[in-house]
């Protein structure tokens, strides 16, 4: 079917709705005036004041460390979980296992956050940096598992089988054959896990402790007091970083995909 005028209108309105608030947010981070409705001229004042806001900068540093550590841990666990789901058709409690992978994706954050906090209290663990990392790892690993799973499902097993037939040990086969082939999905999973961790307010609020205030917690407490352009400035930086990350990632996966298809063609031709 051809794109009708109706479709073009719908898409224009839809994307306008999705992007205008973000554009406004970014534009007003450069506003010299403190008021939202008054344009006081271009200024980098709020970036400077954000930079010298120690609380905000400390929170950003905590968030970055939590993000990297929990995304990495979540990616390892999520990739294992995806392998378990795709490659192990039968094992005791498979139903429960897949349930545990899908449920956190939709579970309201207040429930996940509160229940995990109560576990830490029951175990007598002090809340802080590491409890936030464990909490984030637990929900991000499920997203990674879904992303990697979809790649594994469309995966050509013959290369793996060839390596195994030629006597390559399974662990080596995984690192030499399987992992390079699923790498784009693993990287995408890591990035998703990192941004989810960066983004999370509710779960972190429940599981944090002294000295482990993350950026969303800091932003939230300032937002409750009212709109300040300083928050716009830090949000703009975050949006910029994420946008660059997503574009770079999508370009590199596209390139990897093209290379993979070319390699497969080449292999097939040589096979004939």
């Amino acid at each position: 079917m051809k794109s009708s005028r109706f479709d073009i209108t719908v898409l224009t309105l839809g994307f306008a709705f999705l992007y205008i608030p973000i554009v406004i947010l970014v534009v007003y981070s450069f506003n010299a005036s403190r008021l939202v409705t008054v344009w006081g001229g271009f200024s980098l004042h709020w970036y400077a004041s954000m930079w010298s806001n120690e609380g905000l900068m400390d929170a950003a540093w905590v968030t970055a460390r939590v993000g990297v550590l929990s995304a990495t841990l979540g990616t390892v666990l999520g990739t294992l979980a995806a392998l378990a789901l795709v490659r192990f058709q039968k094992f005791p409690g498979r139903m429960l296992f897949s349930g545990m992978i899908y449920a956190p994706l939709v579970m309201p954050e207040v429930i996940t956050g509160l229940s995990m906090l109560l576990l830490f209290v029951a175990l007598g663990v002090d809340r802080g940096f590491w409890t936030v990392i464990i909490a984030h790892t637990t929900f991000t690993m499920c997203y990674v598992a879904i992303v990697v799973q979809s790649r594994l499902l469309t995966f050509d097993r013959s290369l793996e089988e060839a390596a195994l037939d030629l006597g390559c040990p399974p662990v080596k086969t995984f690192f030499k054959i399987t992992l390079p082939l699923i790498l784009p999905a693993v990287v995408a999973g890591w990035m998703l896990a990192f941004t989810l961790s960066l983004d999370d307010l509710v779960i972190a609020s429940f599981n944090t402790g002294p000295g482990a205030t993350t950026l969303p917690i800091k932003i939230y407490s300032q937002v409750r007091l009212g709109v300040t352009p300083e928050i716009n400035a830090i949000c703009t930086i975050l949006i910029g970083l994420v946008t660059i990350g997503v574009i770079v990632a999508s370009l590199s996966t596209k390139r990897a995909e093209i290379r993979r298809i070319r390699d497969e063609h080449l292999a097939q031709r040589q096979g004939i």
Binding site: I24, T37, D199
Partner: peptide, 22 residues
């Protein structure tokens, strides 16, 4: 937009919807 923070996107609407907003 899904990759940009949830909190940021909600915050963006405060400036628009406030009585003295955009």
């Amino acid at each position: 937009p899904f990759w940009t923070s949830f909190l940021i996107r909600v915050y963006a609407w405060i400036g628009i919807l406030k009585p003295d907003g955009l």
